[in-house]
Design a protein around this nucleic acid. Structure first.
Length: 421
DNA sequence: TCTGGGGTCCTAGGACCC
DNA sequence: TCTGGGGTCCTAGGACCC
């Protein structure tokens, strides 16, 4: 039985803000999504005040003022950099690591012949000492049980010290009986509805359902989870995560009717996707564009649509992808609607150095050095110094980010300075 | 006034083929 | 006029994750 460790950063984005602003410790902190739309991270204090995940900022305005909640616009550059630091430290504790998300990873602890709880405490101390990001750690015989253990570690920190090890069947059953059904990994809103209707309220009752029932109603994915929670190792550590799609999507800060304005944005989304592709040295073979009206406004006519275009050749050229994205928009755009959101996806990747020459479509090979030059200039000077004409030079549209913290770790001009008396 | 963004996987059903 | 069975591939949509 290979034990797994699961490491989860506590309230990650809020904790990142605290690292560089220690006066926030003890204060409620929330981080807002793009356009300062809704709360996407809350410190424990903010959770205790009742701020819900995903809650729109305008609905909690009074609560923010009343309790002096510290509010930040999302600073993903900072969070990404802090994440790398945490993950690098943890990678030193095992030869096999799966980076599951920006703030979580799994480690394979097979063959590590030490007291594993003590080992977990060592990881926790090292990460906290070197990054000041607090973490919770769960260890168990399967990935799903390690994740369950992390919840126990976090919920009962005074007793667990932030590290919990499910090393006996007794502890496994105790944890499963405690874990509410809606908190089980892989059980979302729809499945919770289905299961509570059958009076299944915790993970222990869930694992006692028959395999057949689970497979029929929760698909094969639900069955794998069930086995993993029973202690039968089913989910594997996934060390190499090759992306299968890349997206750039935005909600607009206002509703837009004008096609030319939407075209500017869609064109920019395509350019961003192309940049992400070049960064990971792949090309895409398909591009998808979608637009949608504001589905919160039931008083307005609604319309949404998407289109996927197969490309005649693999590319990561900003110019080509912007062209195809614009073509896609032409196919789905309808006059007379107020649009609120749009996005571009690219998928079906092939490695950059492995493009098959297509004899029917003559790919403009001049784009390759051109894109390299643009990337160099933009990374050296300002992020969007060179743009395509379709991206509306000068008349840039900005995200609302009124509470943005500095890029403490990734921009030399914003590095923290200390004054010594 | 104001409601995020970026991902994965699975299944059912249609198109097409022999 | 009637109208099989089995296979594959693709896509849209729905569920989930952080």
């Amino acid at each position: 039985m290979p034990p797994f460790a699961h490491i989860d950063c506590n309230n990650f984005y809020a904790s990142c803000e605290r690292v560089f602003n220690p006066s926030l410790i003890g204060r409620p902190v929330i981080v807002l999504s793009n356009n300062d739309g809704c709360a996407i991270a809350r410190s424990n204090e903010a959770k205790a005040l009742g701020v819900k995940m995903g809650e729109p900022a305008f609905k909690i305005k009074e609560l923010i003022e009343e309790h002096n909640i510290a509010v930040f616009s999302a600073n993903f550059e900072l969070y990404g950099d802090m994440s790398n630091r945490v993950m690098t430290i943890l990678s030193g504790f095992s030869p096999s690591q799966e980076i599951y998300s920006i703030d979580e990873c799994f480690l394979d602890l097979e063959g590590i012949n030490v007291d594993l709880r003590a080992y977990g405490l060592e990881m926790k101390q090292k990460v906290e000492k070197w990054t000041h990001i607090p973490v919770s750690i769960g260890i168990g015989p399967t990935k799903a049980l390690a994740k369950t253990a992390t919840r126990v570690a976090k919920k009962f920190t005074p007793q667990t010290g932030g590290v919990h090890f499910i090393d006996t069947d007794e502890k496994r059953i105790k944890a499963l009986k405690w874990l509410q059904i809606e908190d089980v990994w892989g059980i979302g809103r729809q499945y919770t509805k289905k299961l509570t209707a059958m009076n299944i309220r915790n993970a222990y009752q869930f694992v006692n359902l028959s395999d057949e029932w689970v497979k029929t109603h929760l698909t094969i994915a639900g069955l794998r989870l069930k086995h993993d929670l029973q202690g039968i190792p089913t989910l594997q550590l996934d060390e190499v995560k090759n992306k299968k799609s890349i997206a750039t999507t935005r909600t607009f800060d206002e509703m837009i009717e004008n096609k030319a304005d939407i075209r500017e944005r869609v064109s920019t989304f395509a350019v961003k996707c192309a940049e992400k592709l070049r960064k990971q040295k792949t090309c895409c073979n398909a591009i998808q564009v979608f637009i949608t009206t504001n589905y919160f406004r039931e008083d307005l006519p609604q319309y949404s649509n998407s289109v996927t275009i197969k490309l005649p050749f693999a590319t990561n050229s900003s110019i080509e992808l912007a062209e195809y994205a614009t073509m896609g928009l032409d196919r789905i755009f309808r006059e007379g609607f107020k649009y609120k959101k749009a996005g571009v996806f690219v998928m079906d990747f092939t490695p950059e150095d492995n493009q098959q020459l297509n004899i029917f479509e003559n790919r403009n090979t001049k784009h390759i050095p051109l894109m390299k030059a643009i990337d160099r200039v933009n990374s050296r000077y300002s992020k969007d110094l060179i743009r395509l004409a379709t991206q509306a030079p000068g008349r840039t549209w900005r995200m609302r980010q009124e509470k943005l913290s500095k890029h403490y770790t990734t921009d030399i001009n914003e590095i923290i300075t200390l004054k010594l008396k």
